[in-house]
C-alpha cells in the first residue's frame, strides 16, 4: 500500500507565447501613454497652427519631405506628428473614462443580479437584453447629432451604451463566487450584505473585470474613432485619429499616407490594448466569458 502524499498544488507561471504578446502590448500602450502625456512638449509644432502655404507635405520616407515636419502636414498645413500625438491624448481620455462609466454601471448591475438572483436578476437580464437590441453606432450618432458634438457627450453616450459586457461577466462570476466556502464563512461570521458585496465578492471577481476593462477601452477607442470619422464625434479642430482619417479622406487617392498614418496608429494602439487584455486573462487565470 502506498502512502498518498498530498502536496499543495504548485502553480508555475511559465513564460509562454501569450506572455510575449502581453509584453508587446504593454510596450505599445506605454509609448502611447508617454506620447499623450509629454508628446506635445517634445514636438516643436502646435497641433492647431495652420500654414496654408505649406499644405500636404509628405512624411520623411517620401520624396519632397521637409526635415522640419517628420510626418508631413495635413490639408491645412498643420504638423501631422503634433496632431497624431495630441490625438493619443484624446483616444486615451475617451477610452479610460468611457470604461470607468460603463464599468460602474455594468458591474453594479451584474453583481446585484448575480448575488440576489430572483426578480433582481430577471430585471438585470432584461436590461442586458434591451441594451443588446439597441444598435450602438446609430444611437450614439443620433444623440451626438441632436445635442451637438462635444468630448463629454461622446464619453457619456458611449459609457451609457457599452456596459453590457461588464454586466454579463460580473453577473456570471458573482454567481460562481456566491456559493463558495469563504462566502458561507463570512455569512456565518455575521457579515452584512454591503460587506459581503464589497469585501468578499468584488475582490474575487476583480481579475475578470480587469480583463473586460482593457477590452472595453479598446472598444471605446474604436467607437470614438468611428463616430469622429462619421462627423459626429469629437468636434473639428481637435485632432482625434478618426477625425484625421475623415479629413484626409478627400486626399487619400493622391496621397494615401494621410489616412495611413492615423489609421495604422489607431490599429497598433487597439491591438496593443487587446494584447494586454489577452495577456491579463492568462496571467490572472481568468477564463473567457461564456
Amino acid at each position: 500500500m502506498s502512502i498518498a502524499i498530498s502536496l499543495p498544488p504548485v502553480r508555475v507561471r511559465t513564460f509562454r507565447v501569450g506572455n510575449v504578446g502581453f509584453w508587446i502590448g504593454v510596450a505599445i500602450c506605454s509609448v502611447v501613454v508617454l506620447a499623450a502625456v509629454v508628446g506635445n512638449a517634445l514636438v516643436p509644432h502646435d497641433p492647431f497652427a495652420q500654414n496654408l502655404n505649406n499644405r500636404l507635405v509628405p512624411p520623411f520616407w517620401m520624396e519632397g519631405s521637409q526635415p522640419d515636419h517628420l510626418l508631413g502636414t495635413d490639408q491645412l498645413g498643420r504638423d501631422y506628428l503634433a496632431r497624431l500625438v495630441y490625438g493619443a491624448r484624446i483616444s486615451l481620455l475617451i477610452g479610460i473614462t468611457t470604461m470607468i462609466v460603463s464599468g460602474l454601471i455594468g458591474t453594479t448591475l451584474g453583481i446585484l443580479g448575480g448575488y440576489f438572483g430572483g426578480i433582481v436578476d430577471d430585471v438585470v437580464l432584461f436590461l442586458i437584453t434591451c441594451r443588446l437590441s439597441i444598435p450602438v453606432v446609430l444611437v450614439a450618432l443620433a444623440v451626438v447629432g441632436l445635442l451637438g458634438s462635444s468630448l463629454t457627450l461622446v464619453i457619456c453616450t458611449l459609457g451609457l451604451l457599452l456596459w453590457d459586457r461588464f454586466a454579463v461577466v460580473a453577473r456570471s462570476t458573482t454567481m460562481q463566487v456566491r456559493s463558495l466556502d469563504y462566502m458561507n464563512a463570512a455569512m456565518c461570521a455575521g457579515a452584512s450584505t454591503p460587506r459581503l458585496l464589497f469585501r468578499e465578492i468584488l475582490p474575487n471577481i476583480a481579475s475578470h473585470l480587469a480583463v473586460v476593462a482593457t477590452l472595453e477601452i479598446a472598444l471605446a477607442i474604436l467607437f470614438e474613432a468611428t463616430l469622429s470619422f462619421l462627423g459626429l464625434g469629437v468636434p473639428a479642430p481637435l485632432p482625434s485619429w478618426g477625425l484625421m482619417i475623415a479629413e484626409g479622406k478627400d486626399y487619400m487617392f493622391f496621397s494615401s499616407w494621410v489616412i495611413m498614418i492615423p489609421g495604422v496608429t489607431l490599429f497598433i494602439f487597439v491591438m496593443g490594448v487587446n494584447f494586454v487584455g489577452d495577456g491579463l486573462r492568462s496571467l490572472l487565470g481568468a477564463e473567457r466569458p461564456r
Binding site: A218, L222, A225, T226, F229, L230, G242, I245, I259, G263, L266, F267, V270, M271, N274
Partner: peptide, 8 residues
C-alpha cells in the same frame, strides 16, 4: 480583425 477600424 478586432483591432482594425472598419471604416479605415
Amino acid at each position: 480583425g478586432q483591432a482594425t477600424p472598419s471604416f479605415w
